[in-house]
Design a protein around this nucleic acid. Structure first.
Lengths: 348, 348
DNA sequence: CTGTTAGCGCCTTCAG
DNA sequence: CTGAAGGCGCTAACAG
């Protein structure tokens, strides 16, 4: 294991010179630089991360806190983990994956021990205890998904209101007049999750704006309940010609219900998912609004890096009066390109 | 940011005493211990990870190298990342997610800088350059999936041969005599990927053992090609009554083809996926062999921890003659409980 | 049973 | 333009 001293010796210079060559924070003569770099290559020298971190109070690591429900797995978590890792790398950071079953303990440890410089909190819930804990510690933290209190911490989220409104507007533009909107599940709405609430808002404003007949229906995580509601909606007297779906967890199940009702997609019923991951679709090329994972990941890392710059580690910025609101990024939704919403069979 | 010195001062003891209380590597009187622990709690003291690592040459971090194809995302990668993180935590390790687009560079850096104590390599390919690089560095490394050379590094994999054989045997046991086995895709077989090769072996041995008519067909990552082959198989004169599928990437597409051929599942055709993730199934309760992600994750972390213990960091063990073969874990496949394979409509 | 001390590898003043 | 020195926080070998 080569150290900076070994490199210096081999290059015939002082250790500090090697350090300066590495950091570039001082002018070094061309000859010296070359000698040093040759020595580095020959010895396969790598600076010890721990020594750097100890000195500089910066680890160049971001922590990603993934919520974990035992026995359950949400595909979106893994997807974001990978993309956020890519984004972090682009900014010179490594990513530490925290899947803590016991809530806030792991995050406290990582923050307190200086293992990471900032945290990204996924799947933020109302009254998430992690938010308070991180604020109390004065630890730079960014939320993926809006919390209830916009002034608390920086955050990034898809603009769910705009997304649902866009999907509905496009559906109307395709000629549909009777549209069903399948919103989030009961318990998500009851918990006033951001995406659930804002999605409903979007449906409301689209209905007002377009004047179309838009029926709003809640989903359910119980397949049986969901199936019953879908059958009700599709079997009603003035059945919808299009279905805009925000609750995608059971989309294949839902499509099976549609098929079982004797309806073909999209001839009899256009189906438009909102906030979709590729896996949600079961391989079907539906017109849709994708969840912009890469863009959200990039944005959340950018905010994390900014938060680190604003709160230099090593000093308690706890009593800092937070000059102004924390920043946020509301990501604009877009229809997936290259697909069009089929028109209704018989326009009414 | 409290240090061990602050704690010592507040407790009226020496810094080393605090250290000993923390590590438990020395007898400490009850009174002293209590005083120290009170001080720790009052100051909310956390040991600096970087200082510990610098001293001990151990970071208590595992690196997970996830292969990345730009613009592509494999759901299985995210799934394993989360589960391996859980498993690492159980062993006292944190997990660093490496999604390096430029191959072996990131791994070298993490290994050389001491950021991690060991690496887990996902989705190992034949002739994977990362394997040689890690061996050369003498860095503890474990493979998730078999490489071609079993003596190279410790590894963990599902026993794909047993899995395919089991699925076929169970299908035969359900009464089927004409079975189609949809193997891995052309390019996977051409590349001699472990799971592809071993899956074919399993089909061969099951055919011999049961005497059933088992047709082996290669899959394709091209949906059109796959569709054509499936139609051929299902439309043949002696059409199969069951389909055992190892290539799950396009399962929903495949099921759509089956439906388009006018066949109902499972009445007309039993479908049995092998090595499935929940997402692969599109919500359908098919009889199947699941990919045992949790078990594989746990096993891979165990081997990584053992590899660390065998190669104490800080000393070059490069010239160690590797006393005996590296360990491995071949995970035994199991049919998903609570589901049965439907018998054929008209046994032949 | 507890205290003192040296040093892990690096960076960054300060001197030359 | 380069070198020497101190200290980041912690642990483990030496005292006592």
């Amino acid at each position: 294991m080569a150290t900076i001293k070994d490199v210096a010796e081999r290059a015939g210079v002082a250790p500090s010179t090697v350090s300066y060559v590495l950091s570039g924070s001082r002018k070094i003569s061309e000859d010296t630089r070359r000698a040093v770099q040759a020595a580095i290559a020959e010895l396969d020298y790598h600076p010890r991360a721990s020594a750097r971190t100890l000195r500089s109070a910066r680890s160049d690591v971001l922590a990603l806190a993934v919520p974990r429900v035992p026995g359950e797995y949400r595909a979106v978590d893994g997807r974001f983990a990978i993309d956020i890792s890519d984004a972090a790398r682009d900014h010179g950071y490594d990513l530490l994956l925290m899947t803590d079953l016991d809530g806030v303990g792991g995050l406290r440890r990582v923050a307190g021990s200086g293992l990471a410089d900032a945290a990204v909190l996924m799947a933020v819930e109302e009254q998430d205890p992690r938010i308070g804990a991180m604020r109390e510690l004065g630890f730079p933290t960014v939320l993926l998904g809006r919390g209830d209190d916009d002034s608390a911490l920086p955050w990034v989220d898809l603009d769910w209101e705009a997304a649902v409104a866009l999907a509905l507007r496009e559906t109307v533009a395709a000629g549909h007049r009777h549209i069903a909107f399948l919103a989030s599940a009961d318990h998500e709405i009851a918990a006033r999750r951001g995406y659930a609430v804002h999605g409903l808002d979007g449906a409301r404003s689209a209905a007002k704006e377009t004047g179309a007949d838009i029926g709003v229906h809640r989903s359910s995580s119980d397949p049986d309940v969901l199936g019953r509601r879908v059958r009700e909606v599709l079997g009603a007297r003035s059945a919808p010609t299009a279905l805009v779906v925000q609750h995608l967890h059971r989309l294949p199940h839902l499509l099976a219900e549609v098929a079982a009702a004797g309806l073909r997609v999209p001839e009899d019923l256009a189906v438009v998912p909102v906030g979709a991951l590729p896996d949600d679709l079961g391989g079907r090329p539906l017109p849709r609004i994708d969840l912009p994972v890469a863009e959200m990941s990039s944005a959340v890392v950018e905010l994390a890096v900014k938060a680190i710059a604003a709160a230099p580690p090593g000093r308690d910025t706890q009593d800092d009066p937070t000059p102004g609101l924390p920043p946020h990024r509301l990501i604009e939704p877009q229809m997936a390109p290259g697909l069009t919403i089929a028109p209704p069979k018989m326009p009414t």
